[in-house]
Design a protein around this nucleic acid. Structure first.
Lengths: 319, 319
DNA sequence: ATGAAAGCGCTAACAT
DNA sequence: ATGTTAGCGCTTTCAT
């Protein structure tokens, strides 16, 4: 910046004024500064700027486990739109569902003084964020609640969802229903499983096919193939998320059985006939809203928004 | 940081040494500092740190148009893995395919002194980056080449792909083939279209159904419905990307016609029987490699990596 | 083993 | 309309 100032024969302060469009600079000098800046290819240093007290970075962050899953992609896009409308940039970071990576990313973001963080956590403790929350960093949990921290949270009602999905199959007369869920440390996965158990218990049926820790399409397909090859295979399945549903569907159709399938969360081209899910974009948008509320200094107790899950049946390719 | 120093009765310098694990501090003082830091909930300020000369931010950025499209999600995940292995953080930004947003994001990233940028551009000029490239910022273009700039580029061979997709349908005896493509300013879209025209010209067939500017599943579905309701509807279609393919497929199956369809890029659960695409993760990984090469100071002419597109047929649900 | 001084690039507050 | 001063939080260099 000093270089620009020298080249334009002005002080650094004047350069600052010109570059930030502040008043009190004659058009002539302004022009000289602009020219000088372009001549040397000057880039302002936002780091130095943000260092000054009271400066906002005008940036919020979204930390998620798996950006390759369109579920989170859609959520991210919704948040990006909200952020943009509020004049903020959104940076997205993916942790590969590793708690250690999540912590390291978040520490990093806070060290970089982002104004707020929206978090789809895979971590088992969030105590380390308590201080930051107190000191005014905005934090919102989406999809999965914090464990030992009070903070704004936006969720779908996964336990009820798991119950509804299972009940749907029970109502259709199935008595042997399998359940496949994601990692145990993923909140939505355990909640949905709990809902499954709730429904099974109500019907007094002992679950025989339950597999957690299924995180990819491939694993889901393999597990389902195994089940379907068993002596008394399940006649219906609940798939705990979109990728699992996809894998399970693949296994079922390749084995030419008519195992019925209910799947959570939509994949754009899913062939699933029965789906259960919610409006991810709305979830993301609400999270962004809550974040901006916090940033606006609204003083209130942490809230929890719970979105309903909806079950739908696909008839002849049309919902 | 000064607060921590006061609390531990040491100088700021000692605090810095402890927090960075530098040698030359007695265990006792180190402990005192750590305790003090925790007591006041101290967070180091990475901004101030990066301000010192010669500091790397250890961060690279990926700027894409639409994070809700799993095509880019998969690419992002691949790049994130590479970045992590290299000890870098990856920040992802989505521009909604708006050139202005892209520029603003990139200017912002460079103002924040990221070490490198991987870019899926939707912009028509990149001259504004020439200076930064000269001054040592690492930049790689992926999926779509720069317009008026020499820089490392990683592409799929889209024109040949468009040709191959069309030829496949011609070989199957179709003479009335429609083409749907993304926005005109998207390089892959125009290249694929060019390939389509190439193939049609070789067969001396006048294209009658061509629609560009189709960016969503819904629009694709609507356009195809329109075509199929025409007097002499196309008997086959080339869908210029994964979302278009999905929409077109929906239209075709809902209208119970047997219009044949070739689609670009894979959506996880696509029912497409003929697909043309490439390994997006490999594309992303290569881009990351090129970026790190640049950052390592390898002095070479800008390279262009071209990945082949592969066509595949789905038979009874198995590829 | 520890500290003091200086300065990274920028801007708010106060001159001129 | 423009410049000077000081300081944001940190680390490099050079003392002690």
């Amino acid at each position: 910046m000093q270089d620009v100032a020298n080249r334009a024969n002005v002080s650094a302060m004047t350069v600052s004024r010109v570059l930030n469009g502040l008043p009190g600079v004659s058009p002539a000098t302004a022009h000289a500064v602009t020219t000088a800046a372009e001549a040397i290819g000057y880039r302002k240093n936002e780091l130095a700027r943000s260092l000054r007290p009271g400066q906002q970075s005008k940036t919020i962050a979204l930390v998620i486990g798996d950006i390759s899953n369109p579920y989170y992609g859609v959520m991210a896009q919704a948040i990006e739109t909200e952020a943009r409308n509020a004049g903020f940039a959104l940076v997205i970071m993916s942790t590969n569902e590793e708690p250690a990576a999540e912590r390291s990313r978040i520490n990093d973001l806070l060290a970089r003084r982002v104004d707020g963080v929206i978090l789809v956590t895979c971590d088992a403790s969030h105590q380390y964020l308590a201080r930051d929350l107190e000191s005014g960093v905005a934090i919102v949990f989406v999809d999965r609640p914090p464990q030992d921290l009070k903070a704004d949270t936006v969720l779908a009602n996964d336990r009820i969802g798991g119950h509804a999905a299972t009940e749907e199959l029970l109502l259709r007369g199935h008595t042997s229903i399998g359940y496949l869920g994601d990692y145990d440390h993923v909140h939505t996965a355990t909640e949905r499983l709990a809902g499954f158990f709730d429904a099974m218990k109500e019907s007094a049926i002992e679950p025989r096919f339950v597999q957690m820790g299924v995180h990819t399409r491939g694993v889901a397909e393999r597990v389902v193939r195994g089940w379907l090859n068993a002596n008394q295979p399940p006649t219906a399945l609940v798939a705990g998320n979109n990728l699992i549903a996809s894998g399970a569907q693949a296994a079922v159709s390749s084995m030419a059985v008519d195992t019925e399938l209910v799947g959570f969360d939509f994949l754009p081209d899913s062939k699933l006939r029965i789906r259960i899910g919610h409006d991810v974009a709305a979830l993301g948008a609400r999270a962004a809203e809550r974040l901006f509320e916090q940033m606006a200094g609204v003083d209130r107790e942490p809230t929890t928004d719970v979105f309903p899950l909806q079950i739908s049946r696909l008839v002849d390719g049309v919902t």
